[in-house]
Amino acid sequence: MTAPARPGLAARPYLAALRARFYLTLQYRAAALAGLTTQCWWGVMKILVLAAFYRGAPHQPMSLGQAVGYTWLGQAFLVMLPWNADPDVVEMVRSGAVAYERLRPVDTYAYWYVRALAWMAARVLPRAVPMFLIAAVVLPLTGLGAWSLPPPPDWPAAVLFTISIICAALLSTAMVQLVTGVVVATLSAKGANAIAPALSNILSGGIVPLLLFPAWMRLGLFLQPFAGLVDIPFRIYLGQLAGAGAAAGIGLQLAWTAVLVLVGRGFLAHSLERLQVQGG
């Protein structure tokens, strides 16, 4: 690679791609609204199930109030899970337009990473903000305070949560990139898109908080990469993971992100090398 004349110049293509994708994705307001409605409904369902579970087994490492908060957070950040390969890349691989991507004087992995990150951020924001308003503001006002999303217990928790949720987005994007690598290798999104959500939804805590799994599984579940998507940031928010525990959690998120970026980058380079651009 050429040495950039100014440090800002090196980042310019990536920032431009990030901005463009963010604003383009933000335009899909109807999808966000529909998603919000569905996620409210499923939030209620999940909370009813949790309430029933706690009535049968009340002694858990997490209080019912915390589990309810955890559930609302999960609904707010649902689209941050690495559900699918970046649909833009899938389409480009299918149509052969991926050839143009290789003609850009940029690192293809980094270029696609920032775009996937922008795509995720632009889908999370219009869903998470109203979800917060509903769960943390509207519910207490209507007298359903016990079933609402409580605020973080203190300022450090709020700050650490902000850091951790950003780390979760970086980690999730690294996973999306792995799935994208599979798509480039197999020229089809079907297989990868079927496996990724199943794994990430369960292992991240997206279905059941990881602390409610049997005790012997908890350490392993904390250490595996998917915990950094949901469980770690949410427990930090609820004050359930603080101080050294929170630091360890964020450290794990960053470490897994680094590992997955390295693996994903190598894998994508290998897949692109073998990709025969179709047609012509």
Binding site: T2, A97, P105, V106, G280
Partner: peptide
């Protein structure tokens, strides 16, 4: 990366 910065390409059947 250095090479593609110096060339321009148009594929008639695709769009950039």
């Amino acid at each position: 990366i250095r090479h593609v910065a110096r060339i321009g390409v148009v594929f008639g059947q695709r769009t950039q």
